[in-house]
Amino acid sequence: MTRTVHPALIAFTALVFLFLLAPLVIIIGAAFSDTTYLTFPPQGLTLHWFSNIFQIEAFRTTAITSLQLAFLGTALSLLIGIPAAYAISRYRVELPRWLSTLFVLPILVPEIVFGFSLMKSITIGLGLPLFPSLLIGHALLVLPYSVRVVSASLASFDFSIEEAAISLGCPPLKTFLTVVLPNIRAGVIAAFILAFITSINDVSVSVFLTGPGISTLPIQILAHMEQFFDPTIASVSVLLMLVTVAVMAIVEATLGLTFLTK
C-alpha cells in the first residue's frame, strides 16, 4: 500500500527539523572558526580551539568531576529508586497514593529553589564537604527519573511471575535479583541514561553546591564564557554532542532506541 503524503506536511516537518538542528549546525561551524570570537559562518578553518580545551586545566578537572557526579549520583538514585519503584508498583493497593507523587516532587520544584534549599540544608546546615553535597544534590535531582522510568517498566511486569518463582523455592530477595530485575532491565538502563544526561547537563542545582576548588563542566563552561567569548565554548559543545551521539549509538546497537520511548 502506498500512501500519499501532503507536500505541506513534508515542508512543515523539514521546518521543524531545521529549527531543531540549525543552532547545532551553527555551533559546529563556529567551533572550527579561525577567529578569537564566536562567529558564524566560520572564518578560516582550525582545530586550535579543540586543542585549547585540553590546555585549560579547569576543563579537564571539571569534566572528571561531572562524570564522577553523573555516575555516582545516578547509581545512588537507582539504588534508592529501583526499590522505591518496586514497592510503589507491588503494593499499589496497600500504599497511600501520594507516595508515588512524592517521588516526582523534585521535578515540580523549580530547580533554582531546589538548589538553594539544598545549599542551605546540607552544605551550610549539615556542614558537609562540597563533593558529598554535590553528590546528594545530583542523586536527588535525578531520583524522579529513576523512579518514574523504572515504575513504567514495572507497570507491565506481571507480579505473578514473582510469585511463581517464590512458589518454586526461590527466596524473595533472590527472586527480585534473578527474576524481577532481568525483566525490567530495559527500564533500568533507560532510567540510567536519562538520569545520567540530566545530571551531566545540570547547572541550576550545581551552581549552589559548587565552591572553591570544585566545579562541574557546565559551570566551568559558563565561567569560561564570562571571561573569554572565544570558540572554545563551541568546541566543548561539539565534544559533548559527540559523547551523547556515541552513547545513543551504543544504545541503538545493543538495545534499539525504541526502548527509550517505551
Partner: peptide
C-alpha cells in the same frame, strides 16, 4: 512462601519471559 514446597499453576501462566 518459598519454603512451602507447593506447585502452583497460574491463570496467566506466569512463565519467566527471560
Amino acid at each position: 512462601a518459598h519454603a512451602r514446597d507447593i506447585g502452583l499453576v497460574f491463570q496467566n501462566y506466569a512463565l519467566f519471559p527471560h
